[in-house]
Design a binder for these strands. Sequence first.
DNA 1: CAGTATCCTTAGGGATACTG
DNA 2: CAGTATCCCTAAGGATACTG
Lengths: 141, 141
Amino acid sequence: MEKREQIFDVSKDPYNHMSRMLFGRWKPFILMAMVFDEGKTNFSDFIKQLPISHKVLSENLRAMEEDGLIYRTVVPDAPPRTEYRLTESGLSMVPLLRAVYDAGWKDMTAKGMPIDTLGEMWHGYRERDDRLMTRVGKRGG
Amino acid sequence: MEKREQIFDVSKDPYNHMSRMLFGRWKPFILMAMVFDEGKTNFSDFIKQLPISHKVLSENLRAMEEDGLIYRTVVPDAPPRTEYRLTESGLSMVPLLRAVYDAGWKDMTAKGMPIDTLGEMWHGYRERDDRLMTRVGKRGG
DNA sequence: CAGTATCCTTAGGGATACTG
DNA sequence: CAGTATCCCTAAGGATACTG
């Protein structure tokens, strides 16, 4: 039930919408990982790079698909692979994500807080370092 | 304990930082309410406008103060009042908040989702409507 | 008025095992 | 490989009562 006669409805607010759709704990990383990998990635690559469980990754990917940010393709190779790719809409969110990252980076820097390295690389604050990529499998080879 | 040797540390990432500092459930609204009210507001005005409990508002305000976004002033009137004001840093976050709001507004509009009215007014998507303000007390009179 | 303190509920995330 | 299903646990919020 509702407690108070209030004109403000959080559930219908764009902040709440964006927060759910784009700024969950994992979604920025999932999306930026795809950008860094030229717009596509597959399930196990996410798992290798992010300390995320299968369940949570799965939920996030499905939600992002439903929100129109990414789409899923099964490539009928042998063995068949699944690829996640950014949609136009997903790609259109990148500048905003970068702006958020930049603001956060500046604030953390100003406050002398340590900043994660892989994220810095993904966002161009650090040269692409293939040794980092090698450590997590795939691309480095 | 840690589960896997992972190069990515979520707790040291700017997204996580911003998410905690600025994109919590209530913080954008608290901050934009202050902007709309020319940079300052007091406790009870927040309570009147937002469906938030005393406890949660109090926690949020304290966190925002610690993060340097706002500061608290007790005005020694009779009766004494408490005012919350934006700091430079808090003010500097406004363009980013607007960008997030705009992106959310566009996405919700494109998807035909209903959007809260007070938020629209705060963000200039709707004329300032003092009848709305009157309904929640204070300013309208 | 401007909060604190207490208690309760729920949503999000994690570990792990299992399936096609 | 690419997920689902299950169970568990914690943190964020809400209701409400109390304090200076």
